[in-house]
Amino acid sequence: MAGATSTFPASHRFETRSATRDHGLVRALLLALGLGFFALFLILPLVVVFAEALRKGWETYWAALTEPDALSAIRLTLLAAAIAVPLNLVFGVSAAWAIAKYQFRGKALLTTLIDLPFSVSPVIAGLIYVLVFGAQGWFGPLLEGYDVRIIFAVPGIVLATIFVTFPFIARELIPLMEAQGSEEEEAALVLGASGFQTFWRVTLPNIKWGLLYGVILCNARAMGEFGAVSVVSGHIRGMTNTMPLHVEILYNEYQFAAAFAVASLLALLALFTLAVKSFIEWKSAQKSDPGIRPEESLT
């Protein structure tokens, strides 16, 4: 969901020109307001997570992470992400190829529909699968006949995860591939490359950073999703609990240190995600075309 904003090195140009330089007091006030708000709303919660997690010492922390239910929650979270992310990756690349490289009717509608899961409340994302696969749902009785469980079981969790992370990779790639145009692909085809060779050798290397960016964001959301998964999970300890659901259970049982311990793992994941994201932004800002070099004479 984050805009792919690159680094902003150029505050300099505003600070050195008299017409765009703010009065010292204004500057101090805005900095104080902005950074104060930032510290209160973003930094403090982050600090609290780690502080509360370690409040009862490392031993309790470690024990909370290694007890069987926590481990099984970690395993399930990894499993759900390991299925959802690759599927959405294939989808994202395919959708971006179709949308960015061709003109066709209904393209704008398709792009909007791909974004749809972002505007649906996570709770509703869970609900729709209950309506389709639940005991009273469309396929409920049929599935029950074959003894297949989707809702209140792992498949439901995976489905809900796929839904909420559905647009991430596609929406990173579509604008990127649109901006890059099709000339390089056309050049590859004229030179005799097949469709697959063109994609693999020309398109993919050009979109790799955007792709990684999308994967990272998709993964963070997949591992952290709470609302949608909560609806379809059934909260069976050691069976259908993901990490965020495990945090909820521990918290509701007043095992605060344990809840924050598991939460701190998720917070680390978030920090890791942001670090990779910043790295990619830095990398792509660096790699961006430095423009045509000055002409050197022939010969």
């Binding site: 403090l44 609290v48 998720l266 942001l274 910043s278």
Partner: peptide, 24 residues
């Protein structure tokens, strides 16, 4: 660092944010 951490709410699972805010 501030610029990078602005995206924290996108990356931090909502349940984690929820219990942290409650603790605050």
């Amino acid at each position: 660092l501030v610029d990078a951490l602005i995206d924290l709410p996108f990356a931090l699972p909502t349940a984690v944010a929820g219990i942290a805010l409650a603790a605050i």
